[in-house]
Computed example of a mutant assay.
Amino acid sequence: MRSTARISTAAASALALAISGLILGVSAGTAQASTCSRAYLPLPDSSCTPGAYNPAVTQSTIGSTICVSGWTSTVRPSTSYTNALKAQGITDYGYSDTSMSDYEEDHLVPLELGGAPKDPDNLWPEPRYGSPTAYSKDSVENKLKTAVCDGDITLSAARNAIRTDWTTALQVTGIG
């Protein structure tokens, strides 16, 4: 699991290198030593990205948090924060493609379902290529949020389904 202390130091270094165009000194197309497995793609390695929740979002607070239009923009971390984690995650996952634009620094438990905004355990570099992709997950997140806000499923059921496997979350919750 990626520790917060390690990420903080690594993230600062990665950001400085990313800004200078040297993502950890590795050129595009060069394989890296990885600490996280890509074997689960399109899902993250749960030992590196187990997911985390925002304690302010509970079933009893959804009416003043996730179900309020625009609420996620109030908690979304800045790209200066997430880009540093993305650069480190690209290394941790050993992606040979080190182009930052080919990944979305994604929340495993989405902000739309009360995922922890800045917790490194909830963020990972999700590829924008392949099948399914980061774009596919976005529609799942939105459908689950709508179902939670409409009272069709509980917040806990939506979170558990997406945290376990977002590719089956709609079917597991009966939304799909």
Rank of each mutant, 00 (worst) to 15 (best):
Y93C: 02
T58S: 12
P50E: 09
T65E: 05
G114D: 11
Y103G: 01
G130W: 09
L41R: 13
G94F: 07
Y129A: 00
H107I: 00
T49Y: 04
I90C: 05
D121M: 02
S139G: 11
N142I: 00
Y135P: 02
A52M: 03
Y53H: 10
K143R: 13
I62F: 05
K145H: 14
L113H: 07
T74H: 00
Y40S: 14
K137T: 01
D102W: 08
P55M: 03
G70C: 05
Y95C: 05
K145M: 08
V140L: 03
T58K: 13
P125M: 01
P127D: 13
S131G: 08
D138T: 12
P77D: 07
L111S: 03
G130F: 11
P50N: 08
D121K: 14
G114E: 11
Y95F: 15
S99C: 04
N54M: 06
D119K: 00
P44I: 00
S136Q: 02
N54D: 15
L41A: 12
T91I: 13
E112R: 07
V75A: 03
T65I: 10
V68I: 13
S131E: 08
T91R: 13
V75Q: 06
Q88K: 11
R76W: 02
T82D: 10
S69Q: 10
A39N: 14
E104H: 15
N54A: 14
S78K: 13
G94T: 15
K86V: 03
S73I: 10
